[in-house]
Design a binder for these strands. Structure first.
Lengths: 214, 214
DNA sequence: GTCTATAGAGAGATAGAC
DNA sequence: GTCTATCTCTCTATAGAC
């Protein structure tokens, strides 16, 4: 099965290149500190050309978020559709999440920034994309009395999801800075796999899966 | 015993007010998006007066970080000095950490931003303050073969510390945004205590404390 | 589609009066 | 100590040529 067709026309290629450069720079420096000039330079065009594709800086930023979070959403729903058992679904979700962040570490920094910026009044754009997950979690755990025999919910699942998400993005973004080792890369299997195992242990413990009814 | 004397002269009071306003605004909006004008307005002075106390914006920001992280450092070392047993020391550290973030939630957002900004090349200022903790952790866990009978280290403790820190700051900053409930405040005991319990469970599991040698 | 040129706002830093 | 006034730079956005 073909991937969602890559860029073919020149226009599509330029647009993709702008998005990719913007993703890197917004993740690394944040919205306010990133200059359109830097994005243009990385693509090899002039600043004014960007507005042919994105009407302003804000719209470009939102397109980046949409791309990154949309990709995550797609990966998660695809994997979840392959499992019926609730325990399996939970583990699959954690696994896909960690792998996705490992394969696209810009997401880690973008999420850290979005969370830091969000307030109760000014809600983050991010919510538009994470809301489906919240609903999914709530539906699975809360609205299914028939599943209460499978999983004993000891804590708020949204709470658990927040802990898993926070631990992952913080780890991926902070580790290169915390370890002295030159060229340390947390997105390699060598580091991603143990992280995944630890998070799975945590999630299993917090959402204590019961084997059979007592 | 008296607290470290509060501001007495007018100058000291103004300086403290600037620091406090800057802490709030830098945490909420980030360095680049915060205007000196807004800080001054909140204090009730003019922008130019700030430079009488802090030579430029960067220096003010670093003073804020120093204040917040210095307070944490002080709270942690004070509490750690009260425990001898390693298991107790670990739990005390987690407890103090969660309480401190709960009592000064600006730290959560400031840390999220620092981590998002740090790269392997451009190291975060934060490291200057967290390095002592890293050394402490390494000294406790790594350089004490005599303690190997007390704690069996299954994973890198720095790794664990990163997960705990990430989960905490993400949770505190993200929850008001994730729950619809108006006026939700994650810094109340009602929410801080369960978080602490969950993190303690996680840390106990990850650093599996052995009761008695087998 | 991409460019050059320019307008215009915003914000930090500095000088000097009070 | 705090203010007013101003300088200067940066960056976004827009207009219009090619």
């Amino acid at each position: 099965m073909a991937q969602p067709a890559g860029p073919v026309t020149r226009s599509e290629r330029t647009r993709s290149a702008i998005l990719a450069a913007a993703e890197d720079l917004f993740a690394e420096r944040g919205f306010a500190a990133t200059r359109l000039e830097d994005i243009a330079e990385r693509v090899g065009i002039k600043r004014a050309s960007i507005v042919y594709y994105f009407k302003d800086k804000r719209e470009l930023y939102e397109a980046v978020l949409s791309s990154v979070l949309g990709g995550l959403h797609q990966a998660l729903t695809a994997e979840l559709s392959r499992h019926e058992d609730l325990g399996m679904r939970i583990e699959a979700a954690v696994s896909v999440w960690v792998d996705y962040v490992g394969s696209r570490p810009t997401l880690a920094r973008l999420l850290l920034r979005e969370v830091a910026n969000a307030t109760a009044e000014k809600q983050s754009l991010m919510l538009r994309y994470t809301a489906p997950f919240q609903e999914l979690v709530l539906r699975e755990f809360m609205d299914r009395p028939d599943r209460r025999d499978v999983v004993k919910v000891k804590v708020d699942p949204i709470h658990v999801a927040s802990i898993i998400a926070g631990a992952t993005v913080f780890y991926v973004a902070a580790m290169p800075n915390l370890v002295s080792e030159a060229g340390f890369d947390p997105t390699t299997r060598k580091h991603i796999d143990p992280l995944k195992e630890e998070l799975l242990r945590i999630v299993r413990q917090l959402l204590e899966t019961r084997g059979t009814p007592t």
